[in-house]
Design a protein around this nucleic acid. Structure first.
Lengths: 360, 360
DNA sequence: CAGCATCTCTTAAGCGCTTCAGATGACGCA
DNA sequence: TGCGTCATCTGAAGCGCTTAAGAGATGCTG
């Protein structure tokens, strides 16, 4: 009792100090209706006096079988992930939704398997997992299933038993492509973030690119390519550049490579706004005027898309709604309900200043 | 035993199935040297067969008194927080550092008290807390102390018993100001993110602004103001605009307000790159040429600072190093060591294209 | 062959809490 | 007076795991 660094008091210490049972002390914190208000106050005061800050979270979790945290699984490291505002917005909306019910967010960054390591998932203290655009074959997804954790997937293929929300990626890609076709463009190129296991950082054939490990990637690409095909532009004529990573600098490099090909494309279909903004920088480097010489379309409509010079034509998705919906799905699963049928959120083409009539 | 949804097997189930003690089963996972390899393999196989995915994280934590997670406390919501790349970079570096030792990150977003709610902190399952630029008086900080959680603070005042890393905010502000003075500027204005409890979204006197709840804010401001004073420019002549929030749009609005004052400032000292980039947009709106009519200096040197047109003169701080250092401090505290003496990381002025000689 | 170290596995005591199933007594009502 | 009710509090059985201490068995040393 005389040790300087006294161990933190426990519920038993508190109960003893007040002279009640542990149950009663516990109830003072968790079930105020189970004891008289006077006694409760006495216990609470004693707690303050002893420096007892409430039930130990871990012990409480063991007893209640609830942690109060949701694991959020990413396919990349944090820096890469958060450099895309699309994630921030989605995550914020999700967090806001679940925070109201007392759930925090446990971040599980990805390694090089298209998601967090399985072991990370198996030892994560969480009641539920959310997968955000992981690779289809990410080991983390198996780990979640093995552990029997409820799962919400965002922008991913269906996983049995999981709740799902996704975006009309294909529809957005189709709209973007039609817009450019309508402006008279015939020479297209596609800019994609890394989508194969091994980064290639080079031009892929459409066929190769369709083996992407990411569903949203495949959906967007097929939207582009099929629409072009319907307009008589063969897939073989459409270079798809896969950057290594998804950062703006990498996109700039990639776009430079695309823009120095001959014949030079007049329209760039970019799978995200970040990639498109990188392409915009590449156009500047190449002294190409946008949209006079080159049209660029992004995807997502994140805030920077509107700030750029020229402002970006892009496919808007309601990221806040997506995150909020995912949050609601999470809460539903946590309440023991069955996953509702998957939802696909609509998109909308936003025409700004980065697209114009094809040159000549 | 016939229930369809069988409860997850426990270590006891596994031990029984193999016919060993629970200890031995536990050792198969945690201390391979404590049992023969043959038996270990038998146990591991049985585990796979039973669908036992390893020790329950919560129970394990209760027994070991370790959670394997670090609580990261922010002063704002996730969206606002991550819209500043400075945080992403710092957080990524921190995560990388602690991830190697098996620690995940538990995100505790802020409310309106300059940090997360105390109750969130008290119930968070974490071994340690990291405070990132919280308000000095954030209740979360008291909660951390009450709980007896080790603490690492980033860019905050000293907290007894906590480890600390911060930036030479004042030095950076001094360098930025000297640079502009050297270019002949005499009419200055300062752009600050929200720093008082109640957002004012208006011009503050320097005296008011020095009551900011955020240390980095005060340090930067004093660096600006003192340097100007030394050059004979009184604080009273320097408007300080406090935006409501820290987003680029809010910065743009604020900068417009500053730029429509008469006499118009020729130099804008911005407390972050995001604010500076917002100011750049404001200059465009006002048809002011940068740097011919107006010079703008940012702070942090995040990637977008180099992308902007014109590229931003700014104060570089090594955010990756800051995050990594914070991570190392965290690991040190977790290892039971005492916090080393606080570290202040250096900054460096990076002159790009957004600053030039004062007009006339 | 006694003595001792080593390897392998077990026993049992926690970790700090929640919660079901009572126990106790006061009170109202017939 | 007897009995059901209600409010209040307690006992005890977990939640699933780790780990110090120790028990046998085996092999080695002198």
């Amino acid at each position: 009792m005389a040790s300087r660094q006294r161990r933190h008091p426990t519920l038993d210490d508190l109960a003893d100090a007040v002279g009640v049972s542990r149950t009663t002390a516990s109830n003072a914190f968790n079930r105020p209706d189970q004891l008289s208000e006077a006694l409760r106050q006495e216990i609470l005061h004693a707690a303050k006096r002893l420096g007892y800050t409430g039930p130990d979270p871990v012990a409480r979790s063991l007893a209640t079988r609830r942690v109060g945290a949701i694991a959020f699984m990413l396919d990349t490291g944090l820096s890469a992930a958060f450099s895309d505002p699309a994630l921030s917005i989605t995550l914020d909306a999700l967090a806001t939704e679940v925070d109201a019910e007392g759930h925090a967010l446990l971040l599980l960054p990805g390694g090089d398997n298209g998601g967090p390591r399985a072991e990370r998932v198996l030892t994560a203290q969480a009641d539920l997992a959310v997968a955000y655009s992981l690779a289809d074959d990410a080991p983390a997804l198996h780990a979640v299933r093995d552990r029997g954790l409820p799962l919400v997937v965002i922008d991913q293929p269906h996983v049995p038993g999981a709740a799902r929300v996704s975006t009309d990626d294909r529809g957005g890609a189709v709209a973007a492509t039609r817009h450019l076709l309508g402006l008279g463009h015939r020479r297209f190129a596609v800019l994609s973030a890394q989508c194969l296991s091994e980064p290639r950082n080079t031009v892929l054939s459409v066929e190769e690119a369709m083996r992407s490990r990411f569903r949203d990637n495949r959906e967007r690409l097929s939207g582009y390519v099929d629409t072009l095909a319907a307009a008589g532009i063969a897939a073989a004529e459409v270079p798809v550049f896969e950057t290594s990573g998804a950062s703006r600098e990498q996109a700039t490099q990639a776009a430079v490579a695309l823009l120095t090909r001959r014949p030079r494309p007049t329209a760039l279909l970019c799978m995200s706004d970040e990639l498109a903004l990188g392409a915009l920088a590449a156009a500047r480097l190449q002294a190409l005027r946008v949209p006079a010489d080159l049209s660029i379309v992004g995807f997502d409509d994140t805030p920077p898309a509107a700030w750029s010079e020229p402002a970006l034509t892009t496919v808007r998705q309601d990221l806040g709604r997506k995150g909020a919906h995912a949050g609601q799905l999470a809460l539903r699963l946590l309440a023991g309900k069955r996953p509702p049928s998957p939802v696909t959120l609509p998109v909308e083409l936003v025409v700004r200043a980065s697209t114009g009539p094809a040159p000549e």
